[in-house]
Every structure is written in structure tokens, then in C-alpha cells.
């Protein structure tokens, strides 16, 4: 399954230099493939996909990315992003 997130760049996205196409990257979010315009940050990904960023924890390629670091965390082609939510537990 795959999805395209076409509006991730927002104001932060710079127009590509003349003669160069906008680069796209492919990442997975919880196992589902997404295409993003580069550069895209983890924070932008969560916002674009209507995730609830304050109630989930995030990891990229198995490494925890703190809430405060998401806006600066650039995603790269092939990254595996996981989100974790609170649940009941023993």
C-alpha cells in the first residue's frame, strides 16, 4: 500500500533551482509507503497525515526522535518511521 503526500513542503519548501526538478523521496510510516517532496521533516510528515503529534512517540529507523527534535529531523529516502501510542498494559 502506498500514498502520496503532496503538500508537505508548505512554506518551508524552496522552489527548485532552474533546470532541476523537485526531488521526491520514499519513506514508510508504520509500514505504509509514502512519497514526499524533499526536503521534508518528521514534524511535517505527522502534520500532513493528521497524526496527533502530542500523543504519540516517534522513531526513525529504530532511533527515538524526541518531540522537540521532529521539526529539525529531515527525512531521507528509505527511512522507516514508526509512531507509538499509549495503551493499557500490565
Amino acid at each position: 500500500m502506498s500514498a502520496t503526500v503532496g503538500h508537505l513542503c508548505g512554506e518551508a519548501c524552496q522552489a527548485p533551482p532552474p533546470g532541476k526538478a523537485l526531488r521526491a523521496i520514499s519513506i514508510t510510516l508504520n509500514g505504509e509507503r509514502h512519497s514526499l517532496a524533499a526536503p521534508s521533516t518528521l514534524a511535517e510528515l505527522l502534520t500532513a497525515l493528521d497524526q496527533t503529534p502530542d500523543t504519540v512517540a516517534t522513531a526513525v529507523n529504530g532511533e527515538f526522535v524526541a518531540r522537540t527534535a521532529r521539526a529539525d529531523h529531515l527525512l531521507h529516502d528509505g527511512d522507516a518511521v514508526f509512531t507509538f501510542q499509549p495503551i493499557t498494559g500490565g
Binding site: N30, V56, F82, Q85, P86, G89, G90
Partner: peptide, 22 residues
């Protein structure tokens, strides 16, 4: 009380009712 964390499934979001009550 003990609680846990679960990796979300693709396309799933939000917080469950159990956790809100806890």
C-alpha cells in the same frame, strides 16, 4: 497503574478510550 506503548498500525491514529480513563 501500569500502561504500555504500542506501535501504531498504518492509517491508525488517535488515543484509545481506555487510556483516557486511566
Amino acid at each position: 497503574v501500569t500502561v504500555g506503548l504500542k506501535r501504531q498500525l498504518a492509517g491508525q491514529g488517535g488515543t484509545n478510550d481506555f487510556y483516557k480513563l486511566i
